[in-house]
């Protein structure tokens, strides 16, 4: 077994543990490469099916191709697709692009707040009706007690401390100092009422592993990651006002792998194009404690 096979087997095992132990389980799909790999791994774990609803938080500032790609794949793979949003903040223009909030506050409001309330079922969830092809309010308002997330330990410091199964209390808080033990392949799969768990099947994957796997499995990935002839591509996807493309002529997965291995990105952090990380030294950590992915 090579390294990718081992990573795949471990992630599949974790997904199956999650599915076995949580009644109200969902998977966050940011449309990016990592959570798309996660979605693919779910198809592996469940033999072509995805018996878990996929939740996307739509800030309405996502690059338009992301939403098109999301809905295309959702239809093709018959996904149970859900999205949530911070309707109030968007309506009242309390955002960074509207000039009414700084980047961190905007992230907190459009992503963390929206996520928290979408997961708890307190805010409206929209669900894709495969018959009409349209989204409609979801009748299910039950909170999700298990949330599968595609974070990787190599992304930055605070993510490197995550567990595969990581509890959050009823306020969504992450107690980094007192995390549950994980011995061998036994994880925290019991949880008190009112708490929920974040599940991280991709923790041990690196950015390079992700691309190697996309290449090996031919996973359809949004074209934003590839140079379309203008000499730029996205390395990490987010909202267009805060995400910059990088200078690169990589046009396919093979070229991206080559670039990561030997090229100019081999020593530059992946999230370098994300402006909100830079606002204070622990910016992302502050966001993550509050529930940011």
């Amino acid at each position: 077994m090579d390294a990718l096979n081992k990573l795949e087997a471990q992630s599949v095992y974790i997904l199956r543990e999650a599915y076995r132990n949580f009644k109200n389980l969902c998977m966050l799909w940011s449309i990016g490469k990592d959570s798309t790999v996660l979605l693919w791994l779910a198809r592996k774990a469940f033999f072509g099916h995805v018996p878990i609803p996929l939740v996307h938080i739509d800030t309405h500032y996502k690059i338009p191709e992301m939403i098109q790609y999301r809905d295309k794949l959702a239809r093709e793979w018959k996904l149970n697709m859900i999205y949530g949003e911070n309707t109030e903040a968007i309506k009242n223009k309390l955002t960074f692009p509207d000039g009414n909030a700084d980047r961190l506050t905007c992230c907190r409001s459009l992503k963390s707040e929206a996520l928290k309330n979408t997961l708890s079922g307190e805010w409206i969830r929209y669900r894709l009706n495969h018959k009409t092809g349209q989204y409609q309010p979801d009748e299910n308002k039950e909170p999700y007690s298990g949330v599968i997330v595609g974070v990787r330990a190599d992304e930055e410091g605070s993510r490197s401390k995550e567990r595969y199964f990581s509890p959050r209390d009823r306020y969504n808080e992450w107690n980094i100092g007192d995390q549950p033990p994980e011995f061998w392949n036994q994880f925290k799969t019991d949880f008190a009422p009112g708490t929920h768990l974040r599940i991280h099947p991709l923790l041990d994957w690196t950015e390079l592993n992700i691309w190697e796997y996309i290449d090996r499995e031919h996973i359809p990935i949004t074209s934003l990651y590839f140079d379309q002839g203008k000499g730029v591509r996205y390395r990490s996807l987010g909202c267009y006002p805060c995400t910059c493309p990088v200078q690169s002529t990589a046009k396919n997965t093979k070229e991206i792998i080559e670039e990561l291995k030997t090229g100019k990105f081999s020593n530059i952090a992946e999230r370098a194009g994300r402006a909100q990380d830079k606002e204070d030294s622990g910016g992302l950590e502050t966001l993550r404690r509050e529930g940011y992915m």
């Binding site: 190599d154 930055e156 410091g157 490197s160 401390k161 100092g177 923790l203 622990g282 950590e285």
Partner: peptide
């Protein structure tokens, strides 16, 4: 010790994963 409360206490609270490679392996 990338996390804030570790820096202040000067001890490793949790396990951190670090990635490095040699010619042989990752």
């Amino acid at each position: 010790d990338a996390l804030k409360d570790e820096r202040s206490q000067g001890i490793t609270i949790d396990i951190a994963r670090c990635f490095f490679k040699t010619a042989k392996r990752d």
